[in-house]
């Protein structure tokens, strides 16, 4: 841990990273793996955006109860991102609309973008990592 702190102090290069989340939680392992990678990346002090689009918006739903399927409820972990200084969370309006969802249905505060805004955000990244 302390080694990582030394490392990011040393390099000083900040790149724009986008983590693109397109899968529903639980049915595949993508959502959980993506979240873990973001938490690890946070140690490197990069400019991180997390984007939720297509079925990825389902990851952020309130009221998730995983007791019945006996898996970890990692939806609560999205609320820890703020403490990791990851504050740029985006959803796209079209994906929300297609699923009958609004920002009130989500467990964290997000910025809702139009398709054009989302496309621009993606185009300006140095690195896009897709889950």
């Amino acid at each position: 841990m302390s080694d990582m702190d030394d490392m990011d102090e040393g390099s000083g290069i900040v790149k724009k990273f986008m983590f693109l989340n397109r899968k529903a939680p639980h049915g595949t392992v993508y959502a959980l793996e993506g979240l873990e990678v973001v938490l690890i990346t946070a140690a490197f002090d990069q400019d991180v955006s997390m984007v939720f689009t297509d079925d990825g918006v389902y990851q952020l739903l309130k009221g998730i109860d995983t007791k019945g399927i006996e898996v970890k409820d990692f939806s609560k972990t999205y609320r820890a991102l703020d403490g990791y200084d990851i504050e740029k969370l985006y959803v796209d309006q079209a994906s929300m609309d297609a699923r009958g969802l609004t920002e009130d249905d989500l467990i964290v505060d997000v910025t809702t973008l139009s398709v054009a805004e989302m496309a621009n955000l993606m185009a300006e990244q140095d690195v896009v990592i897709s889950f």
Binding site: M1, S2, D5, L39, A42, A43, K72, D73, F74, K76, T77, R79, A80, G83, Y84
Partner: peptide, 15 residues
Amino acid sequence: AEYQIAPAVRVLTKA
């Protein structure tokens, strides 16, 4: 209990 993860050390320190 609140976040379902163990925090990284710098997050722990801050919290």
